[in-house]
């Protein structure tokens, strides 16, 4: 007699196809694969001696920092002091490397709270009022900078302080991208680094006295404008300077389009932004006809 379980399992392919019919390998995933394959072939091997050396230097800096901030003194135990470190570090990022976040200084056209659908745009992360969107599947561990805090999972993301996300699980560690503070962060999801780039959300784009340069901070190596071409080296850097000096803020709205500008940084990070006419959609939308005409002028 045939095993009844065997009979049930014969139906597994049909049941699985019905249950997972909405799960498809998309063109987006295909593009990520091609990008990573290109990256992995050109990726430079890190200097092995640098890892222990940097680790030692990092430990020394943390210990020195704890002494300087009086963390080992006062009424707190050593463990209590370490437990409050993430909040202190977030505050330093918000007040030191970037302008303060007082409500009156928001350059956004609308203030308030943003509700984000879990399926919209692949996920959002907020670090002290600055919004970041998921940019790509994975990035190299070499870009991981200093620890910002642990993400708190929420269904709607508000413009308040702290670190929260609608796509990362509670406790996911969030780190700066070295040299790109304020422009991008990475989430360490069980050893896999996910890159989030700066974006606008719920009417909030740049905060404080930030400019477009702050939201795209980093050493640029290459620029690719779809349908036009790719520039690298000094040409790319000069064009970025044109963008930063000429772009004017056109509002927090940011929408998808068929044209993209891909900025490749020297650390291997790639940031892809939509382009509509002479408008760049990044952290808000920015008008810059000078940039686009100069870019096209290099090819035509």
């Amino acid at each position: 007699m045939k095993d009844p379980m065997e009979e049930k399992l014969q139906d597994l392919p049909r049941a699985a196809d019905e249950a997972f019919g909405g799960l498809q390998a998309t063109q987006g995933l295909r593009n990520r694969i091609l990008e990573q394959a290109d990256g992995s072939r050109s990726e430079r091997k890190p200097l092995r001696w640098l890892v222990p050396a940097m680790s030692c230097a990092g430990v020394l800096l943390i210990v020195a920092g704890l002494f300087m901030t009086g963390a080992f003194g006062g009424g707190k135990t050593g463990i209590d002091s370490l437990l409050v470190m993430p909040e202190q570090q977030i505050a330093v990022v918000a007040q030191g490397n970037a302008p303060s976040l007082e409500e009156g200084q928001l350059t956004a056209d609308v203030g308030g709270t943003a509700s984000i659908s879990q399926n919209a745009g692949g996920g959002m992360l907020v670090v002290d009022g600055r919004y970041y969107c998921l940019q790509s599947g994975k990035v190299s561990s070499s870009v991981k900078g200093s620890y910002l805090g642990d993400a708190r999972y929420v269904n709607s993301v508000s413009g308040q302080g702290g670190v929260c996300s609608d796509c990362l699980s509670d406790g996911t560690g969030i780190y700066t991208v070295a040299g790109m503070e304020g422009a991008a962060v990475v989430a360490d999801d069980g050893g896999t680094l996910r890159l989030f780039r700066r974006t606008s959300c719920g009417g909030i784009a740049t905060v404080g006295g930030e400019s477009l340069r702050d939201t795209l901070r980093g050493d640029v190596e290459m620029l690719s404008l779809s349908g036009v071409g790719t520039l690298d080296g000094d040409d790319a850097r000069q064009l970025m300077n044109t963008l930063f000096s000429c772009a004017s803020y056109a509002g927090s709205e940011s929408r998808e389009s068929g044209t993209t500008l891909t900025i490749t940084y020297t650390n291997g990070v790639k940031i892809k932004l939509y382009v509509s006419g002479d408008r760049l959609m990044g952290c808000g939308s920015w008008n810059c006809p000078e940039f686009f005409s100069a870019f096209r002028g290099m090819f035509y």
Partner: peptide, 22 residues
């Protein structure tokens, strides 16, 4: 979490249980 094709409207409890059991 089952991610059914939108066209597959009728939920089949027994099949879902089998998938979850696997």
């Amino acid at each position: 979490e089952l991610i059914p094709d939108e066209r597959a409207v009728d939920e089949r409890l027994e099949k879902q249980e089998l998938l979850k059991a696997v």
